[in-house]
Design a protein around this nucleic acid. Structure first.
Lengths: 125, 125
DNA sequence: GTAACCGGTTTTCCTACGGAAACCGGGTTT
DNA sequence: AAACCCGGTTTCCGTAGGAAAACCGGTTAC
């Protein structure tokens, strides 16, 4: 029983500072959650794209999801939508400067995913 | 109509290299998706934690979700579970070295979330 | 003229995520 | 003995995510 109180005593640490660190991450996740948002942003790395173009790049996404996700991204000003008044209408999606501010996040995720893939390969051998 | 073909011509670019860049990100997202996994990992930054301790740190998570997410994290070797054969049983969760390899990802997400929060505050004034 | 493209919307349907609460055996505290 | 801790599991349930396909008016290429 002395053991129990001992092990229990150890945990008191890590007060609310930890929770404070979590909040911003939670904020970010709130905006970027789901399978698609980051991939859509990636597809817009090299310049404006049109709807079907994005759909072709982001493998597996349906028109409905793309439509919805683009709206979300637009609301959060990560992507801008431009309509050209031609016949027929041409619509372009552009990653905003704010959207580009996610570059590091995406890069880190990319790097991690890359080494994770290698690790998995290694294990399966 | 010349305009249309012109605008259409511009898009051919960004071939499959873009899709190749997406795959690792997709892999990473596959493992880290959901509201909780990264937050749980964060709560284990400062050392081992017990179930209820984690639940107290990760605000809003239910026992069921925590239980499920910990299992997922364990399967992917981001978290290790240690059972101490005491009475009553004590169970500790530890972030593995592999779990710590996500530090940069979390840091970047944290940094972005922080400035995003500032940005939102600025706008609402 | 007809097939295929454009930028989506709408409908239907199913599944996964995720919350609330009860519950389990056991232990400790008072 | 009552009340509270531990580490979860189980049940129930609502909602959001996501897939498939039809559909719209209009344009363009063959």
């Amino acid at each position: 029983m002395a053991f129990m109180t001992e092990i229990l005593e150890k945990q008191k640490v890590s007060g609310p500072e930890c929770r404070n660190r979590m909040m911003p991450v939670q904020d970010a996740l709130d905006i970027l959650h789901g399978k698609w948002k980051l991939l859509i942003l990636m597809s817009l790395s090299d310049g404006p794209m049109r709807f079907k173009e994005i759909q072709r790049q982001v493998e597996g996404i349906t028109a409905k999801m793309l439509s919805k996700e683009l709206k979300d991204l637009e609301i959060n000003e990560l992507v801008a939508r431009t309509v050209y008044d031609t016949t027929p209408v041409a619509v372009e999606y552009t990653r905003t400067p704010y959207g580009h501010s996610l570059k590091k996040v995406i890069d880190e995720l990319h790097a991690w995913g890359l080494q994770h893939r290698k690790r998995v390969m290694r294990k399966s051998n």
